Amino acid sequence: MQPASSCACGAKPRFVFACSGAADVGAVADLAARRLSADGTAAMFCLAGIGGRVPGILKSVETASAIAAIDGCPLDCAKKTLEQAGFTGFGHVRLTDLGLEKGHTPATDEHVAQAARAAAALFAGERP
């Protein structure tokens, strides 16, 4: 698979956003998004730029063929940030729905891989 950040002659980008919060599940969400970006599944993009309504970032995301948000907990900060900026129809995975527990889920390779698989499934049109 070609990395999401490279040009593929007219291919629209796929973006992944992570809550990247202070809790352990936020760290897992962040690392999972980074893994998806590194393996070419989707380009990790700046959620703070969405929240800050940075015009260039908003314009780039409007061109996406697919968007996924990874939230660590039921506060759904990534999902809400995207929605408040007007983005809809994107995939969403909440790590606590996968059995990861806020405050008790260290950012191990196993937890990151589990989160990355769930988010990658969204891009494949599957349910996590």
Rank of each mutant, 00 (worst) to 15 (best):
L98R: 04
L82Y: 02
V93A: 08
T81W: 05
A120Y: 00
K102F: 01
C77R: 07
A115S: 01
L100N: 02
G72M: 12
A119S: 04
A115W: 02
K79M: 13
P74L: 07
E110S: 14
A66G: 02
L95G: 10
A85G: 04
T108E: 01
T81C: 07
V112G: 08
A85C: 04
G89N: 06
P55S: 13
T63M: 13
K79T: 15
S60V: 08
A120V: 07
H104L: 13
K102W: 01
V61T: 14
E101R: 15
A118E: 00
C77A: 10
A85S: 05
T63A: 14
I67K: 02
L98V: 03
G91E: 00
G86P: 01
V112I: 15
A64W: 07
V112P: 05
S60A: 15
L98Y: 01
A85W: 02
L100C: 04
D71T: 09
T96V: 08
F87W: 00
A66L: 08
D109L: 13
I70N: 04
L75T: 14
A69L: 08
L82E: 09
G103D: 09
K79C: 14
A68T: 11
D76Y: 09
P74R: 10
H104A: 15
G56F: 03
A78M: 05
E62D: 12
S65N: 00
H92T: 03
T88K: 14
G103V: 04
H92I: 08
D76E: 14
Q114S: 09
R94A: 12
R117K: 15
A66R: 14
V93M: 08
T63L: 13
G91W: 03
L100A: 01
L75A: 12
E62M: 11
C77L: 10
D71S: 12
P106A: 13
T88E: 14
A120G: 06
A69D: 06
P106C: 09
A121C: 09
T63C: 12
A119D: 04
T96F: 05
T81H: 01
L98P: 04
A116S: 09
A120T: 07
L75P: 03
E110Y: 11
D76N: 14
V61C: 09
H92Y: 00
T81S: 11
L82V: 06
Q114G: 06
R94I: 15
P74K: 12
A78V: 01
A118W: 08
I67G: 02
A116Q: 01
V61S: 02
Q114F: 02
E110F: 13
L58R: 04
F90K: 03
I67D: 05
P55C: 03
T88D: 13
G56N: 10
I57E: 01
P106M: 06
E110C: 12
F87H: 06
G86F: 08
G72W: 09
V61H: 02
D71C: 10
S60Y: 06
A69C: 11
K59T: 13
H104M: 13
A69P: 03
R94H: 07
C77I: 03
T96A: 05
A120R: 15
A118M: 06
T105E: 05
A118I: 06
G86S: 00
